[in-house]
Design a protein around this nucleic acid. Structure first.
Length: 720
DNA sequence: TAACATCTATTTTTT
DNA sequence: ATAGATGTTA
């Protein structure tokens, strides 16, 4: 074990205000911290961790749970800066990533193999669509039927809120006949398909973790004893499933601190329930309440306006808070009508010009926020035309681009030969091979593999299998399989991989040898707690499987790029050079991982997320304007904030108005405004630029606000 | 029967 | 830009 870490002494008293200090040094068993926008929530959490370390709590006994990858990264970085303890020493991350980590170590207990793959939203959708087409084709056919995606979301909501699927299906799909019978049946099939290929979707990461903790008392005890402190960020955005996980994973000695702000709950559509905050003292005994009500971020003008939005809420929730401003007075928030979205884009850009040229702001001080991705289209165009560098932290991201996903599918298949979704995706790339043919090839491959008792990848080049491949596609197909074999051999060694069919896999899981499990537990227990543990156990792992020297993930990636896919890329994409570079940068990313399993898990969990760095590198500079959805800007702050599309129908979205979900939209608007430190500009187009060019009215949230708390501005964009 | 080409309509938010 | 639906080709 490493010695007790040293880090610069921190004067907690002087670096925190009284409220913050109270929360940071809280002694009670459990604590609920209500921290308003801009009150130093992250600061409080960071100092709390530092304080715990100073009290002698080892980092590996602290669990930090957040909602988004970005929040997790940011928090761990700040802790690292403050305490000098590297982030890898803590257990920190999103609920999903922690779930993944624990499940990896206890896979057999929930009916999975430890090398299970994680399906991202698109993979899961593809698999579920397949099931729907097979099981209930009539249910999804026609334009008045629910799409697989819609059904999937409904079930996901049910799972995240821990409600019966029949009930939610009936409520939310009442317009579809017999939904309450068909949807659960579809779900059952989908679950079976997932298990068969040893994979799980995002919700499984939470659900199975819950199951594990509930049904496996030794596991529960292990984690309960391990974690002395659990800190949960953004508690208002947890759903019942996550709240239950916190309950189950805390042991008799565990201290839980939840931090949140019910006014900022913006994920109810995903099952989040800010009432978890109200229930916290009930679920967690001996809870002390801390309120942090001093706002350091915004000028009084911005804060007044934001509070004014909130006061229109129809449903008061939870505990009342009153935020107090500490900053100097500044400019009032401006509301600026424009003719249409092009004029709006133009106005934003010219205002940004003056901010940068005359007022001394840099582009990175500014963020443009919007309700939904498509609202930024015209602005992107304008920025590109005027070559203003910008970064979009949403929409199609690095890991979601077709070529990255295609390539990652190959890695996935190499790692888990049961991953049919991945295999189908790869084969579909080849001309003349569609979903149907891919299916047949795989089936034939599995048959040959089990008949001759050879590995699947060898079987896939068998004559019987090749017969199923259309003639024109055969060359490409063989190159592909050869590359996959190379990758697989470098990874697993030559002999070990017998082509496990689905049947064999389930057998293997059924008679799980105990030592497998205990190795997992051992690994899990030591992971990151002890720097030696990793290397020792990796060697164990290797020794267990094969005696040869095995390739690192980065090397496997290299083999893949040099193989079939590299050539393929050049054939089909006109801009192959850039895509090729993307793959090369994947090598760099892969170098951070010791085994492929970890790399793939990270890729799956990141698939909605991009590191800003990647995008910035493309832009070739650090000083760029930021464009973001409000959801993704949560927790961030900027001197200057533009909110575009502030009109009824755009924000709140028409859909939300129709469904009566206005409180959530209002909270979202509140979140948007409270990102601003000094200047806040809200713009809207008076004519909607869709097919129905209707007249738009300023957002009802602005109409509801106290008129003296903002200033309308009509006039030329140059002069506001 | 399956894959491909073309046309059309339409964009919520994230793990 | 993209997915879905529809029609066309091998």
């Amino acid at each position: 074990m490493a010695d007790k870490p040293t880090f610069p002494p921190i004067d907690f008293r002087s670096e925190l205000n009284e409220d913050q200090f109270g929360a940071v040094t809280s002694q009670s068993r459990n604590a609920l911290v209500l921290a308003g926008a801009g009150s130093g929530k992250t600061r409080t959490l960071t100092y709390r961790v530092a304080w715990l370390l100073e009290q002698g709590v080892p980092p590996w006994r602290i669990l930090l749970l957040t909602f988004t990858n970005k929040a997790a990264g940011e928090m761990l970085e700040r802790i690292e800066d403050l305490t000098g303890i590297p982030r890898s020493q803590f257990w920190g991350g999103t609920f999903h990533s922690i779930g993944q980590r624990i499940l990896r170590a206890n896979a057999y207990a929930v009916g999975l193999n430890p090398d299970f793959t994680i399906l991202d939203a698109d993979d899961a959708d593809a698999l579920f669509s397949n099931v729907c087409k097979q099981v209930a084709p009539d249910f999804i056919k026609g334009k008045n039927s629910p799409t697989p995606r819609v059904i999937f979301d409904v079930v996901s909501y049910a799972r995240n809120t821990r409600s019966p699927i029949e009930k939610i299906a009936k409520e939310r799909l009442e317009w579809a006949p017999r939904a309450e019978e068909i949807v659960p049946a579809l779900w059952k099939e989908y679950t079976a398909a997932k298990r068969l290929q040893n994979s799980c979707d995002y919700d499984d990461l939470l659900e199975l973790l819950c199951e594990l903790l509930r049904n496996d008392p030794p596991a529960r005890e292990r984690y309960g004893n391990r974690f002395l402190h659990i800190l949960v960020d953004e508690f208002q955005d947890t759903n019942s499933l996550q709240s239950e996980i916190v309950r189950l994973i805390s042991g008799p000695e565990t201290h839980v601190m939840a931090v949140g702000d019910d006014a900022q709950c913006i994920y109810t559509w995903r099952g989040a329930n800010y009432k978890n905050i109200v229930d916290f003292p009930i679920n967690f005994p001996d809870t002390q309440l801390h309120k942090i009500e001093i706002n350091y971020r915004s000028t009084p003008e911005i804060l007044d306006f934001s509070n004014s939005i909130l006061s229109a809420r129809t449903e008061e929730s939870g505990f009342s808070k009153q935020l107090r401003a500490t900053r100097e007075h500044g400019a009032p928030p401006y509301v600026i009508p424009q003719l249409d979205s092009f004029a709006q884009a133009h106005a934003v850009v010219s205002k940004i010009r003056t901010l940068v040229e005359d007022e001394g702001y840099s582009l990175s001080d500014i963020i443009v926020l919007y309700r939904a991705h498509f609202q930024a289209k015209e602005l992107q165009l304008e920025l590109t035309n005027l070559s203003v560098p910008f970064v979009i932290t949403s929409g199609i991201q690095f890991f979601q681009q077709a070529h990255i996903r295609d390539f990652v599918a190959q890695l996935r298949f190499v790692q888990n030969h049961n991953d049919r979704v991945a295999f189908t995706r790869i084969l579909n790339l080849i001309d003349k091979i569609g979903p149907r043919t891919a299916e047949r090839i795989l089936e034939a491959g599995n048959n040959v593999a089990s008949n001759k008792n050879i590995k699947l990848l060898t079987a896939l080049l068998d004559k019987l299998v090749l017969k199923k491949v259309p003639e024109v596609a055969r060359d490409d197909y063989q190159d592909l399989i050869l590359t996959l074999q190379d990758m697989s051999e470098s990874l697993h060694g030559k002999e070990i991989q017998t082509g496990a069919t689905a049947a064999e896999l389930s057998q293997k899981i059924a008679k799980t040898p105990d030592e497998e499990n205990s190795l997992g537990e051992l690994f899990d227990f030591f992971a990151d707690g002890n720097e030696y543990a990793n290397s020792v156990l990796t060697e164990n792992d290797i020794a267990k499987t094969e005696n040869t020297v095995l390739a690192t993930p980065a090397e496997v990636v290299r083999i893949g790029i040099d193989g079939w896919y590299g050539d393929f890329l050049k054939k089909i994409y006109p801009n192959w050079q850039q895509r090729y570079d993307d793959l090369e940068s994947l090598i760099g990313f892969a170098e951070k991982f010791e085994n492929l399993s970890d790399l793939l898990a990270q890729l799956a969990l990141f698939s909605t997320e991009t590191t800003d760095k990647d995008v910035r590198e493309r832009n070739g500079g650090n000083d760029s304007l930021r464009l973001s959805t409000i959801h993704q800007a949560k927790g961030l702050e900027f001197p200057v904030v533009f909110v575009i599309g502030c009109a009824d129908g755009l924000f709140p979205l028409r859909r939300a108005i129709e469904e009566g979900d206005l409180d959530e939209e209002r909270r979202l608007f509140y979140v948007a405004c409270t990102r601003a430190k000094e200047k806040l500009f809200m713009l809207y187009p008076k004519i909607s630029s869709g097919r129905d060019s209707s007249l738009l009215d300023v957002s009802q949230f602005i109409r509801e606000a106290e008129p003296s708390s903002y200033r309308m501005f009509y006039g030329s964009p140059r002069s506001f």
